[in-house]
């Protein structure tokens, strides 16, 4: 569906179900240079099981208009405005990669609005390799190729996509190249690199929190994810073997099962 935040049109996938104000809200926030489509194997399930799934495209990404936001803090405020814009008071947040920085910051800024927080491949800080950052800022498609290489574990590299017929790396590559690289990936990478408040923000989080980490994640290694989780009171951690940073696609079923249990327990659906 489409709605406006700060005068700019925002696109969010509702997982194939019309938006229904009565149902509890889950907002999914994608990673650097990507779009709502990375969440397709989670959002449709929640949409069909008593929730409003809202997989947003950040400004300037995917099908959303406007310019990309330049800092994690701005993105965190923007997510909070999304909750207001769709007429809700509260939401559960699910973030992937850069989306984890955004949702951690958002939860610490608006503790009363956020019911649960789920982090996929998250870390307290995501410092960028300077060369990769420079490639992305110079609009070099190699930045996407490098990111896709590092972001995928064995499943992504060899294949074995949970949806028959789909091939991981090329799908991710086309997604990341669907808009101008320097305006999406370039801005996002710089925002990640600049963001230093992750660990401090984590200490303020009081809502139920889940971290899903993967052993072959080269972008946000398990060690970093655990460091972040340790700062959040009562945080749950789930670690997936033989899987890379794109766990929400590489091990979509496993992620869904864990996420489902966590969210339905802490933020029950509207029973039909």
């Amino acid at each position: 569906m489409k709605f406006k935040v700060n005068g700019h049109e925002v696109f969010a996938s509702t997982g194939g179900r019309p938006f229904d104000k009565k149902k509890p809200l889950i907002i999914f926030v994608h990673g650097s240079g990507l779009t709502h489509m990375t969440w397709v194997l989670q959002t449709r399930y929640f949409a069909f099981h008593g929730y409003n799934s809202l997989a947003v495209d950040l400004p300037g990404h995917g099908l959303s208009s406007g310019k990309s936001l330049k800092s994690i803090e701005e993105m965190a405020d923007w997510v909070s405005e999304v909750i207001d814009a769709v007429g809700h008071k509260k939401a559960s947040l699910v973030g992937h990669s850069q989306g984890c920085l955004v949702t951690v910051e958002c939860t610490s800024r608006y503790p009363n609005k956020i019911k649960t927080l789920s982090l996929m491949g998250g870390a307290g800080a995501i410092p960028m390799n300077p060369e990769l950052l420079s490639l992305a800022e110079n609009n070099d498609p190699k930045a996407v190729d490098l990111m896709m290489d590092w972001a995928h574990g064995p499943a992504g590299h060899f294949g074995g996509h949970p949806v028959p017929g789909l091939y991981h790396i090329n799908t991710g590559t086309m997604l990341a190249k669907s808009r101008t690289i320097q305006n999406t990936l370039g801005v996002d990478f710089r925002a990640c690199d600049n963001y230093k408040n992750g660990f401090e923000a984590a200490k303020k989080i009081k809502c139920p929190t889940l971290s899903i980490l993967a052993t072959d994640d080269k972008m946000c290694p398990v060690k970093e994810g655990k460091k972040l989780a340790a700062l959040i009171d009562g945080s749950q951690v789930d670690i997936i073997d033989n899987c890379g940073h794109m766990m929400l696609l590489e091990e979509a079923d496993r992620v869904l099962t864990v996420l489902k249990k966590f969210i339905t327990t802490n933020y029950p659906p509207l029973s039909s």
């Binding site: 294949g159 074995g160 996509h161 028959p164 017929g165 789909l166 091939y167 790396i169 090329n170 799908t171 086309m174």
Partner: peptide, 14 residues
């Protein structure tokens, strides 16, 4: 399907 998609540099195949 995945093998041919990968060889072609495509996203998906049927």
């Amino acid at each position: 399907e995945e093998r041919v998609a990968s060889l072609e540099g495509g996203t998906a195949a049927l």
